[in-house]
């Protein structure tokens, strides 16, 4: 049985890349993990140091129906994508 309360986390490090590359990489993984994401089995964690991506990625994934959470980490941004996200404070 799958434990829905603890979805698998897939980490994608796009640091060093800029838009639209970071977005395209993200979309690629969202497409790949579509079913698992929609069933809440996985969440995707994007690491980016490109500030613009913190706007473009959430915009795009929200339109796809996912929840997004952007947090600032040391030297990069972390963008969590899932359906729904297990944590609070969804954007």
């Amino acid at each position: 049985m799958t434990d829905r309360s603890k979805p698998k986390e897939i980490l994608i490090d796009t640091r060093g890349q800029v838009c639209p590359s970071t977005l395209l990489v993200t979309l690629q993984h969202l497409n790949l993990q579509k079913n698992a994401l929609r069933n809440g089995l996985v969440i995707i964690k994007i690491m980016t140091d490109h500030r613009h991506s913190t706007a473009t990625i959430p915009n795009a994934v929200k339109n796809m129906g996912y929840d997004v959470l952007v947090t600032k980490q040391k030297g990069y941004y972390e963008i969590l994508i899932g359906l729904p996200l297990p944590s609070q404070g969804l954007t």
């Binding site: 977005l23 497409n31 613009h52 473009t56 795009a60 339109n63």
Partner: peptide, 27 residues
């Protein structure tokens, strides 16, 4: 989709085909 256009130097024509951005975006 709300992001910046591709830059030539960012993505070679060959990579363009390999990465298949249209496919990715379309999907």
């Amino acid at each position: 989709i709300g992001t910046l256009p591709l830059k030539q130097e960012e993505l070679e024509d060959d990579t363009l085909i390999t990465l298949d951005p249209i496919g990715v975006v379309a999907e």
